[in-house]
């Protein structure tokens, strides 16, 4: 088991761990933002309440992860969340993509099918990662993963219900869902990717490898598809680039500008 105090004894371990923590934190931070943009725009009020609760949990996970980074010497958690530039971010590109045309304040033409598919696919991936991380050699992360997984259980159930329901209803619903699925598949591989430190992450038992993650994800999805006879196929791709390596779209830059707009007024002030 590795603790925060002992980290400095193994710089290679620390580098790999830090990279992974950024991936996890940045994923949750940006996807919680995309979720919060939906606020007041969901298909009905009950869903608005449920979805905003999920986004809030997810932002809470990001906060805990940034705080963990702070505790291992990466700097102030708020600065990590708000001040890092797009090319320093490690989130998957799929998660930064806009919800649709317009902005969350002006003429938002958001696609509920894309929201459901993206959030379901992501939540499933996150669940699998957190299960693996519960066995992590880095003790604080193993503990955090247990905590996160408890809330994740409800998120997964929520999105799975929407996903299977809308996928099964023939006509416009199914057409939109299949189109959203095809879009998500084009970059879903990037969510399951582990970046350039994968070898060390496995070597030091921080977490399982990428191949295993993808295998578990595909297996879960495959069984859902056959159980519910869904008209889709799993084809994981990474067409828009690898966010784990700092490759990002303009969507992320715009999002970060919004997310940090008040913070940037005075980063040294207490807010």
């Amino acid at each position: 088991m590795m603790t925060i105090e002992e980290l400095h004894t193994n710089p290679a371990y620390q580098d790999a761990l830090v990279d992974l923590l950024y991936q996890l934190a940045d994923d949750d931070f940006i996807v919680a933002y995309r979720g919060s943009e939906w606020l007041g725009l969901a298909p009905h009020i009950e869903e608005d309440v449920a979805f905003s609760s999920i986004s809030q949990d997810t932002m809470g996970h990001a906060t805990m992860l940034y705080e963990l980074l702070e505790s291992i010497g990466e700097g102030d958690a708020n600065a990590l969340a708000h001040a890092r530039k797009a090319d320093e971010r490690k989130n998957a590109i799929l998660l930064e993509m806009v919800n649709g045309s317009g902005t969350y304040l002006q003429e938002p033409k958001y696609d509920w099918a894309f929201a459901v598919v993206r959030h379901y696919c992501y939540t499933l991936a996150k669940t699998i990662k957190m299960k693996s991380l519960q066995q992590s050699s880095f003790e604080p992360l193993a503990q955090l993963a247990v905590k996160i997984n408890m809330e994740l259980h409800y998120h997964l159930l929520h999105w799975k219900t929407w996903f299977t329901q809308l996928m099964k209803i023939p006509g416009e619903s199914q057409e939109r869902m299949v189109a959203a699925w095809d879009r998500v598949m084009k970059d879903m591989k990037g969510v399951l990717a582990l970046g350039s430190y994968e070898e060390d992450l496995v070597k030091y038992n921080v977490m399982t490898n990428e191949t295993q993650l993808m295998h578990s994800w595909m297996q879960e999805m495959q069984s859902l598809i056959s159980n519910y006879h869904l008209p889709i196929e799993v084809r994981l791709k990474m067409n828009s680039g690898n966010g784990r390596l700092g490759e990002h779209s303009k969507d992320l830059e715009d999002a970060l500008n919004t997310l940090s707009s008040v913070y940037r007024i005075d980063p040294t002030a207490a807010w």
Partner: peptide, 11 residues
């Protein structure tokens, strides 16, 4: 909501 200046304020 997104613009809140710190993580705690966002939450």
């Amino acid at each position: 909501v997104p613009k809140a200046p710190t993580l705690r304020r966002k939450l």
